[in-house]
Simulated assay, not measured.
Amino acid sequence: MTVASADASAKPSVERRPPGAMAGRLRSIGMFAVSIVAGIAVWQLLAMKYGSGLVASPGQTVSAARELAADGTLGNSVIASSRRILIGWGLGLAVGVPVGLLMGQVPFIRRLLDPYIEFFRFIPPVAFVTLAVVWLGIGEASKVVLIFYTAVFIVTLNTIAGVLSVNETKLRAAASLGAGRWQVMRSVVLPSTVPHIVTGARLAMGNSFLTIVSAEIVAAQVGLGALIWTSRNYGRIDWVFVGIIVLGILGFVFDRVLRIVAARVLKRYEVRV
């Protein structure tokens, strides 16, 4: 072997992306941009057709957003709503996952708790807004509890579905190798259930945004729901549009961050989101 060939073989191989990967990424970005531009164009046409009294134009909405941001109203509303959503959603995740794992693994507990899960999950959180305010007051607790109520059943049901979908052959194989209940849970059940948990977490996040508006309309002075309701009282359609659009952007960002974190942290579980 010559020195040149030895040096060439000693050089580390450079990992290259597939030729079509960059083109596919650029295509996705381009489609996203086209979609946004088309949506804004349709919005502008609707505003021109129905007038600013019914539909605020993109320009009016941007001006209203600047106005609300200048006096701190928009920033305070975003922070307040985000805090309530993250706390309530996080509590729902912290309770829903272990309860779902337990119900999925232990038939007795599943039969014991299933009637309550099936009963309460069909009652919308907005039905409990008045009771939450009466029992917990107009402070943060009532909003957080309502969001927790929204999230916990979704996460629990998705976790149960993940546990029950585990291949029976894998469970028997682990048991035949002498694995105990905890080892089976950690090595077989949990890896198979993680994708269902992530899906439940994403669905619960979306429903948390639905709940925060009704909760803040009834019992909050600060928040995006309160901003939308106050705007309605003052007849400021442009403020209403600001609140709605910011809610959508915030939800998009939260979901995207959740997907990125899940894909990286839970990479070994082959989570695809």
Rank of each mutant, 00 (worst) to 15 (best):
Y50D: 14
F252D: 12
V3A: 13
M22I: 06
A175P: 08
A56Q: 05
I217F: 12
G248W: 00
G248H: 01
R181T: 13
M48S: 07
S35V: 11
R83S: 01
R236Q: 06
A6D: 12
R172V: 10
L171E: 09
E15M: 09
L146A: 09
V218M: 10
P115I: 08
W229N: 12
L190F: 09
G39Q: 06
A215S: 11
P115M: 08
V166I: 05
R83Q: 01
V134C: 13
R268T: 15
T130A: 14
P12I: 14
G200K: 03
I249P: 06
Q105M: 09
V97L: 07
L112E: 08
P18E: 14
L45Y: 14
G200W: 09
A151L: 10
T193A: 03
P195C: 03
V34C: 07
L54Q: 04
A173N: 14
R236G: 05
L266D: 10
A262V: 10
A174K: 05
T73L: 00
V99T: 08
R202F: 05
G51C: 03
A220F: 02
T61I: 11
V62N: 04
R25Y: 08
V62G: 06
R83I: 00
I217L: 06
V218T: 11
L250E: 08
P191N: 04
A141W: 07
L146I: 04
I40P: 10
R259K: 15
R121H: 05
V106C: 11
E216N: 09
R110K: 09
V246F: 01
G88E: 01
F241R: 05
V273Y: 13
V166L: 03
R181Q: 15
S77P: 03
I87D: 01
N76W: 05
L177I: 12
Q60G: 07
I87P: 01
R181P: 13
G139Q: 06
L101R: 04
R110S: 13
R27K: 05
V78S: 00
I228A: 06
V213E: 04
A80W: 01
M103A: 07
I217Y: 09
M22H: 10
A33S: 14
I154Q: 02
L26F: 14
M185P: 06
S231Y: 05
A33Q: 15
F122R: 12
T156N: 06
V184K: 15
M1I: 11
